[in-house]
């Protein structure tokens, strides 16, 4: 179990002047600015949960995760993993956690993948039998066998991510931190990775803390989402609840051969709104209030649309609408 209590992290940065002249000025000045990256957050995560930790860039996600892994010390407040504060007893906690930072690899860059696994086996003291068993399982699950003997630097992003996941699971950690595990990957690889995360979570009841910008990741994986903005938690609950309260907003983008008169279009009793820009028409509606098919049908038959794209609400939209709602409240 992970318990976060009143966690706050403030970074102090010297106020810098540009250029080498500024370097000297900075040398003798004592001014600095304070940046509150994480602001008094509290959270409890139970064993076996998959948490989607989401928010815009710079909202404080990475800072929180780094404190949970123990490589950043909180300014105030505490994080405990099964009663231990990770930044105080790093080595003890390390045996129980696995970390994948999407952009950085844990693997050794210039040697065949299998050699990295061999080193991890020794570092985490995985017994031979368990190592073999888990490797077989992970190879099958993630399909990493085919490039096992290639140097990591020659792997594609998708292959590398799968290899990194396998490396993080090798010692069967109780908690797995995944920072943007699907960023920049194609749809098939994303599916594969989601399936793997789900399987591992069910098989070993690994707790997974996941940050992502992909709504699909969250829909497929997370029983619970925690949303952070400006260092504060603005939402903590299930995804369906968000959809209930903010609506399952869909947008259909169509192209037309003509310029439509917006005020003449069917608004289905005000449930649909239109926006026309650059030769394209955006049709926005709440899928809980009106069936998708009826809007699509209308767009094709009545409006004679000739191209068509549907998009669901994005994380950015959700964050924005939650913020808007909070502002209205206060």
């Amino acid at each position: 179990m992970i318990e976060i209590k009143n966690l706050t992290k403030i970074f102090k940065k010297p106020i810098r002047k540009e250029g080498i002249l500024g370097m000297f000025a900075t040398l003798f000045s004592r001014k600095y600015e304070e940046i509150t990256a994480v602001n008094d957050i509290s959270l409890t995560i139970d064993d076996g949960e998959i948490i989607g930790y989401i928010g815009a860039n710079g909202a404080g996600k990475s800072t929180t995760i780094k404190m949970m892994c123990g490589i950043l010390t909180p300014t105030s407040g505490t994080v405990t993993i099964d009663g231990v504060e990770p930044y105080k007893k790093r080595r003890q906690v390390a045996q129980n956690i696995g970390v994948v930072f999407g952009q950085k690899t844990q693997l050794w860059w210039d040697i065949p993948l299998i050699e990295s696994f061999k080193v991890f086996k020794e570092i985490y003291q995985v017994p031979d039998k368990e190592y073999k068993e888990r490797m077989d399982f992970l190879c099958q699950l993630l399909g990493i066998n085919e490039f096992m003997n290639q140097p990591v630097r020659t792997l594609s992003l998708g292959q590398r991510m799968r290899a990194d996941l396998a490396a993080a699971w090798l010692h069967n950690p109780k908690i797995l931190f995944l920072d943007e595990p699907t960023i920049g990957l194609d749809v098939l690889v994303k599916e594969n990775i989601r399936k793997a995360i789900k399987t591992m979570n069910q098989k070993y009841s690994t707790t997974v803390i996941l940050t992502t910008h992909d709504m699909k990741d969250i829909e497929n994986l997370c029983s619970r989402i925690v949303m952070i903005e400006n260092g504060k938690i603005i939402y903590d609950g299930s995804l369906s609840k968000i959809k209930e309260s903010f609506g399952d907003i869909r947008t259909i983008y169509v192209t037309l051969n003509y310029v439509p008169q917006l005020d003449k279009l069917n608004t289905f009793d005000g449930k649909v709104t239109y926006d026309y820009r650059d030769g394209g028409l955006a049709i926005k509606f709440n899928a809980q209030q009106i069936k998708v098919e009826s809007v699509v049908d209308y767009a094709f038959h009545t409006l004679r649309a000739n191209d068509f794209k549907i998009s669901e609400i994005s994380i950015e939209d959700v964050v924005k609408s939650i913020l808007k709602k909070q502002n209205e409240k206060s």
Binding site: R91, V99, Q106
Partner: peptide
Amino acid sequence: NGKLDPFFLRPIP
């Protein structure tokens, strides 16, 4: 460059 972070995430010195 933050490349020492992984070292701190492993259970050996």
